[in-house]
């Protein structure tokens, strides 16, 4: 069995030193790899990332991460990425990594993602440059995720995001802020490329379990949702779910949206 530990929204800062380490020291006895779905730091300061790395130093399994919105707050995401990569952590932003775990090829495609909303209540790629930039960013990240998933040649395929791909895992959040918590475009990308599991964070008041329209399990692993340090998901049989036959996105996407 492949055991995948996952957590998100650690929001590590100076006052949290020592709080995480006891829960991770013996992780290798319970899991084969650790996935971190963004918001590793509190305000995106690389020194916070260094403190977190010190907390993770006893972890003996591969670690794969994507950054979250907090990690971008002070425009020093590159410094955070460099610090994490320097410690051997795979940091993905539209890329992928394949790890061999006991002969099973586990592929992880990762992207931060972004907001925009879900069917029936979406922002539209229309109008002011700021609005087009907002939706355009999500479209670009979704396209990167799809491409990264498609590139993977593996037995078990995982999509790692910070923003939510489905509304299921936002239940508990106020409906008004759903468009700032994720986008259906991410789920479309996952379904088109195929995956066995999608993980995300960001929605602290959401729910753990959901499913994409194509049937891919989605888990919100934000620590406030889990109410524990991490979740562990076990796969008996590496399924390598194939792409799901979805129609391509229409050239004119206005029909998708309620409002412009």
């Amino acid at each position: 069995m492949i055991r995948i530990a996952a957590m998100a929204d650690v929001h590590f800062g100076a006052d949290a030193v020592g709080s995480l380490r006891p829960h991770l020291t013996h992780l290798s006895e319970r899991a084969d790899l650790l996935l971190v779905a963004g918001d590793l730091t509190r305000v995106g300061d690389p020194t916070e990332a260094m403190l977190l790395l010190d907390e993770l130093r006893e972890v003996r399994v591969p670690i794969v991460a994507v950054l979250g919105n907090h990690d971008h707050h002070t425009d020093r995401a590159a410094g955070i990425t460099a610090a994490l990569r320097g410690a051997g952590i795979h940091v993905l932003e539209g890329g992928s990594v394949t790890l061999d775990i006991d002969g099973v090829r586990v592929g992880i495609a990762g992207v931060k993602g972004f907001g925009g909303g879900f069917l029936g209540a979406c922002a539209s790629d229309f109008g002011e440059p700021e609005m087009r930039a907002f939706v355009g960013h999500t479209k670009e990240r979704a396209a990167r995720l799809e491409a990264a998933l498609r590139r993977l040649e593996c037995d078990l395929r995982i999509a790692l995001l910070h923003y939510a791909p489905v509304a299921d895992t936002l239940k508990g959040e106020r409906l008004e802020i759903y468009p700032f918590l994720g986008s259906y475009l991410l789920a479309e990308a996952i379904d088109r490329a195929g995956a066995d599991l999608a993980l995300h964070g960001h929605a602290h008041a959401g729910s753990e379990q959901g499913t994409t329209p194509g049937g891919v399990p989605v888990r919100n692993v934000a620590q406030p949702v889990l109410r524990r340090t991490l979740a562990i998901y076990g796969f008996d049989d590496a399924g390598n779910r194939g792409p799901i036959d979805l129609p391509p996105p229409p050239e004119l996407a206005g029909w998708r949206y309620l409002a412009h």
Binding site: P217, R227, T229
Partner: peptide, 14 residues
């Protein structure tokens, strides 16, 4: 205070 001390169950995907 965020409680992170709960035991970690394993969710099993067949």
């Amino acid at each position: 205070r965020a409680g992170l001390l709960a035991p970690v169950p394993l969710e099993h995907f067949p």
